[in-house]
Nucleic acid binder design. Structure first.
Length: 423
RNA sequence: GGAGGAAUGGCAGAGUGGUCGAAUGCGGCAGUCUUGAAAACUGUUGAGGGUCACACCUCCGGGGGUUCGAAUCCCUCUUCCUCCGCCA
């Protein structure tokens, strides 16, 4: 969530920046400032009451010690009154603070100045494109038919066990998945990311920390008996590793990578675009998470983009990079680059990575700070990105690398697979 | 699942009703010494709110209670540890 202090000091600037999201945040922010005003006034009254009460208690203590307990009685009566007053003030204060927090939860992050205007994904701006789009014969197949032809992914079988959107990878398909995961992790650790295997189930605090809660619980699978959620992305458990931390400046940056399955209910998705691997309820992803000094977070973002580019180059997949417009930008992000691979047989671009800087938005919720040179606590910047989301990379490989009688494995993956074609 | 024990500052760890936001050690920061570093020595060092700055308030796992007064007593929840049971 946004920092109160910034809202107080730069309200107009923030309201105007949030217009890029097609949001008039003016009323919400006014409400926040109003609640903040009220909160501080209550806090101040409560403080005064408590200060007086503390003072009297000390006097009572002195009277008892000096053997004059009867003189303490009038003071005791006074403290009882103060206690009653502070109870009322305290309750009011808590309610006000809670209302303030709730209001803040519903204000999205301020877009970075480079975020383009726009309403939907049609308005995202392509900033880079690379890789040759192969020319396929007209009998080229989309990946779900290739999956059937070579018997490497079984959607019906997964539907039997669980439901639609939970495929079963088989034989060389399963091995190719495993190869991709290992390859991605190797690339990431070689670039300095520290590998972790986080829990796949998270508690409410973690959901609030990275911004999945409140309001987006409908996108996550819930474990009702325990108030837990299946992770929609490794971003959640990995970023929350440092929830509540006060880091030393020299500990920054912290860079993590981790492989996890991701679980998404994808309520509201339908139609041809969700066929095959295009949109799943369970999919594998290798994630990057960085905690950065505010001064260097945008350099880090660019470095993450370069890193993902490097992987796609090695895989020799045609891809492009989009800068998300204000209307398509995620609630918690300040700037996001989406990577899309071209799926030749479907003749469409598929999102395979999303690389974002959240600046202090998550850190403020996470209470994730570092101590700077002057000994002051400051919020870190959090960033994350996929490197990469497996199913659509797999779709891209199957479709772009198909020949008449096999699928050729990209050279860089051959050592990981142990075979060079699927036939 | 059963029985016990525990949770204190970045870390370790004292503290069982008032003078405790909290000893001590380590770590951090600054300085002295040194060509530089290390060592040694000296000083300093929790977080949040609030204030121009002070004052002041809150925080000893979370929540509630007893008391004029709670890190300290009571209730409750969570987590961790030990032992037993079950089990990959």
């Amino acid at each position: 969530m946004l920092q109160l202090q910034l809202l107080r000091e730069h309200k107009d600037h923030i309201v105007s920046a949030l217009k890029k999201r097609n949001l008039d945040a003016g009323p919400m922010i006014s409400k926040v400032l109003e609640l903040d005003e009220k909160r501080r006034s209550l806090q101040s009254k409560l403080d005064t009451t408590l200060a007086e009460s503390n003072k009297l208690s000390k006097e009572i203590g002195v009277l008892f010690k000096s053997g004059k307990p009867e003189e303490a009685n009038p003071l005791k009566e006074k403290t009882a009154e103060l206690k009653e007053a502070s109870k009322v003030l305290g309750e009011d204060l808590n309610a006000t603070s809670e209302a303030l927090t709730q209001e803040l939860y519903h204000i999205p992050n301020v877009p970075h100045e480079s975020v383009p205007d726009g309403n939907s994904d049609d308005d995202n701006v392509e900033v880079f494109r690379e890789g040759k789009i192969p020319e396929l014969k007209k009998e080229a197949l989309p990946h779900w038919e290739l999956a059937k032809k070579y018997d490497i992914i079984d959607f019906e079988l997964g539907a039997k066990v669980t439901g639609a959107g939970f495929p079963v990878y088989k034989g060389k398909g399963a091995r190719l998945q495993r190869a991709l995961i290992t390859y991605f992790l190797d690339k990431n650790t070689a670039a300095g990311y520290f590998e972790v295997q986080p829990p796949l189930v998270i508690n409410e605090e973690s959901g609030y920390g990275t911004g999945q809660l409140p309001d987006k619980e409908g996108q996550m699978y819930q474990v009702q008996a325990n108030d837990l959620y299946l992770i929609p992305t490794a971003e959640v458990p990995i970023t929350n590793l440092h929830r509540g931390d006060l880091l030393a400046e020299k500990e920054l940056p912290l860079a993590y990578t981790g492989y996890t399955p991701c679980f998404r209910r994808e309520a509201g998705s339908y139609g041809a675009h969700v066929r095959g691997l295009n949109r799943l309820h369970q999919f594998d992803k290798v994630e990057l998470v960085r905690l950065e000094h505010p001064d260097s977070s945008y350099e880090a973002l660019e470095a993450m983009v370069e890193h993902v580019k490097d992987i796609l180059r090695e895989l020799k997949l045609p891809y492009r990079i989009l800068r998300l417009c204000g209307g398509d930008l995620g609630f918690t992000a300040a700037l996001t680059y989406d990577f899309e691979v071209f799926s030749t047989a479907q003749n469409r671009w598929l999102e395979i990575s999303s690389v974002s800087n959240f600046e202090t938005y998550q850190a403020n919720r996470l209470k994730l700070r570092f101590k700077d040179k002057n000994g002051k606590s400051r919020l870190v910047h959090t960033l994350n990105g996929s490197s990469l989301a497996l199913p659509r990379v797999l779709a891209g490989i199957l479709e772009n690398y198909q020949t008449e009688d096999n699928i050729t494995i990209p050279e860089v993956l051959v050592p990981y697979c142990g075979f060079d074609r699927i036939d």
